[in-house]
């Protein structure tokens, strides 16, 4: 492959006490793609995202973002390398409005200084206006219907997820890690998020998403990695992965289990 990968993970290992949460995981995410990270609960998907974004230190393994090694860097340095993320359990700043929350995301794209802010210099005023305009545009783009002046924490569940996406996008990342972006959304809302992802990919962004909505994954993901019990089960298109027996087993249980369940059902009915 001639092109540098957006994210390249090699031999990632992370243990919590005796539990191997991530065991020798490799991940190759091509740039400008929508990449799905799948697997049942407890498969280690969020742990992988936490390690890539620097929230957790890996026990072993190499991580490269656009060719630059990022493992061992503090999270704010990784963010400055162009990695942004959202959270499975929504994490907004209490007391902040939607607009303030999204503007906070623009932090490392801004040049404003303490002195400039205190003296309210011309550069400061211009930058504040630019940041506000960009934030408002993002708020509209991700489809938030509430007022930008509303407290972010009072929004509906779906809108709070959109605020997180807008906050991450305000940092103008090259890679966006989305941890269950459509959890709690209905089909129409989920599709809207999917369309948003397509638009972002078209602009050159790489998107990695943890997602349980298979229809969404099928429709929008270019490629997926399926994990189970901390290890990679399969890599490729969703259809190809679902052909593999061990993937089906991880998701739907063993064939013998299925047969047993079916027998039980019949027994109950009869």
């Amino acid at each position: 492959m001639s092109e540098v990968l957006a994210i390249e993970v090699e031999g990632l290992v992370k243990t919590f006490g005796g539990l191997r949460a991530v065991a020798e995981v490799d991940l190759r995410v091509p740039p400008r793609s929508i990449y799905g990270l799948l697997g049942p609960n407890g498969a280690g998907k969020t742990t992988v995202v936490n390690i890539i974004s620097g929230f957790l230190a890996p026990d072993r393994g190499v991580i490269r973002v656009h060719g630059r090694e990022t493992h061992g860097l503090p999270p704010y340095r990784i963010a400055r390398e162009g990695v942004a993320r959202t959270y499975q359990n929504i994490r907004l700043f209490p007391g902040m409005t939607v607009l303030e929350t999204v503007a906070t995301g623009a932090y490392h794209r801004r040049r404003s200084t303490i002195l400039g802010a205190v003296l309210l210099s011309r550069a400061e005023r211009r930058e504040r206006a630019e940041v506000a305009a960009k934030a408002l545009a993002l708020i509209e783009r991700v489809g938030i219907t509430a007022s930008p002046g509303a407290l972010a924490e009072t929004l509906s569940y779906g809108d709070q997820r959109r605020v997180e996406i807008a906050r991450a996008l305000a940092a103008e990342p090259r890679v966006l890690l989305l941890d269950e972006p459509t959890a709690g959304m209905n089909d129409a809302e989920s599709r809207q998020v999917g369309e948003l992802l397509l638009g972002l990919r078209a602009e050159g962004l790489t998107l990695v998403l943890i997602e349980h909505n298979m229809r969404l994954v099928e429709e929008f993901c270019d490629e997926v990695t399926v994990m189970n019990s901390g290890a990679v089960l399969a890599v490729g298109t969703l259809a190809a992965c679902l052909e593999q027996p061990d993937v089906r087993e991880a998701y739907f249980g063993k064939r013998s289990d299925a047969r047993r369940i079916e027998t039980l059902r019949r027994a109950r009915r009869g």
């Binding site: 974004s53 942004a84 994490r91 902040m96 503007a103 906070t104 490392h108 991450a168 940092a171």
Partner: peptide, 26 residues
């Protein structure tokens, strides 16, 4: 003056959730 500034937003973010603040490059 600092309240709504780049520093002010970052300060509030660090206070409320330092980990999330870090993921924004702060």
């Amino acid at each position: 003056r600092l309240r709504g500034s780049r520093f002010g937003l970052a300060a509030s973010a660090v206070r409320e959730d330092p980990a999330v603040a870090q993921s924004l490059g702060i």
